[in-house]
Design a protein around this nucleic acid. Structure first.
Lengths: 221, 221
DNA sequence: AGTTTTCTCACCAAAATTGGTGATATAAAA
DNA sequence: TTTTATATCACCAATTTTGGTGAGAAAACT
């Protein structure tokens, strides 16, 4: 082993960082050059430390993992990224792979898997656990077999204005309320609402709210 | 240090277990006697190993942390419990304290905090991080200062029939649909709906759905 | 036994939602 | 440049929801 693999860790759970730190310390090929508890300035910090591998959670304060990946692509950095997430939602996996992550592990994995994953992606390979590979397969078959619209397609068919209005509906605002908030005619608001209902195949505003909460289109406070 | 502190770890994230394991290994006073990835037979396993301290997550498959704590109380075990959760929801903290947990840490805490917490509770003390103490204070003031009805009081004011109808509303059923499902007059359904809106202080069916989802009165599928 | 709660139903009027069609201006994409 | 997508608005009719009041019967509680 000529040079050590430089690693940066990012997760809002400090206890997990400390734990992985302790695990990685046992391997002489690894050198943890930094860690972050949120996504702020993460790209800059990784670049400055010249880390080879970034092990990152998706859910982080300030800036989430998806945004960080986008930034990596925009700025053309070559640092390999391994996602370490609690969730194995197909939508998320699809997005993450599209954004060029080299690996994806769920937190159900063993500490040893992280060691393997880091070694693997540092050599230019990819590393996905078998459960993740299964999910990817599901996405593939879903996209090629079913002619019906997938949830992703439905969601991507919503316009920004519609999403904005959906947000207000989910805040218990009436049509008139919204029209006053946006300075548009009540008729327009109702048109948007109707188009939303048609697109999301629901029968009422309650259906809109249910769809939005189910697919995390809005944040519930 | 006469005898080592026997510790059992329970968390569905293996990587976190491995991490904490690595952290605790550095302290000669600690001995991890077992770990679990879910709540199944957790109480039995802890009892068999005669662990002094159980560090446990709330969210676990098979049996969650709350259920495990209940079982501990029923069976009268003396093992100290430290909750290590991602969430710091006041309701959860309140419940956990009521069930006799000796400590509560969020996963935002440092690995060192776990060491401190274990040492502390093993000596018979309690260990709560300052952010958790703040939350407890909030609960206290909420219960004693405000004369307004607490969420719990509001929820307990809902009758079974109303809850039933709330469930149907959250399934996007119309008033007429519900009246047919329950074989009652549409007027009755609307009366229930109106009473619900008054009790929950919301302005529309959307408000009802939001209240129900926020407080887990219904299960979203 | 008497009181309270819950469930039931009715009637009324105002307001809002739902389900259509059609049309215009503007911006984006092919 | 032509087409497409988006946002805007109007008009219409049917239906539903909302906000009241009042009231009877059954169940639960004191």
């Amino acid at each position: 082993m000529e040079t050590k693999i430089k690693i940066h860790l990012a997760d809002d759970h400090q206890v997990l960082i400390d734990g992985i730190l302790a695990v990685l310390k046992t391997n002489p090929n690894f050198e943890v050059v930094g860690f972050s508890l949120n996504g702020e300035n993460l790209v800059e910090r990784v670049a400055k430390n010249e880390a080879h591998v970034l092990v990152m959670d998706i859910n982080m304060p300030e800036k989430d993992g998806i945004q960080v990946l986008r930034e990596f692509n925009e700025k053309g950095f070559t640092c390999k990224v391994i996602i370490l997430s609690s969730y194995d939602d197909p939508k998320l996996i699809k997005e993450v792979i599209k954004l060029g992550a080299s690996g994806y592990l769920t937190k159900q994995c063993a500490g040893e898997n992280i060691v393997d994953a880091i070694t693997s992606v540092a050599q230019g390979n990819q590393y996905f656990s078998s459960t993740i590979k299964d999910k990817v397969f599901d996405i593939f078959t879903e996209n090629n077999q079913r002619q019906a619209l997938s949830i992703e397609d439905i969601i991507s068919g919503i316009t920004t204005r519609e999403l904005e209005i959906l947000g207000y509906i989910c805040e218990e605002k009436s049509g008139k309320d919204i029209s006053e908030l946006l300075n548009i005619s009540p008729n327009t608001v109702e048109t948007h609402r109707k188009n939303l209902m048609k697109k999301l195949k629901v029968k009422s505003s309650v259906g809109l709210v249910l769809f939005a909460t189910k697919h995390n289109l809005i944040s519930i406070q």
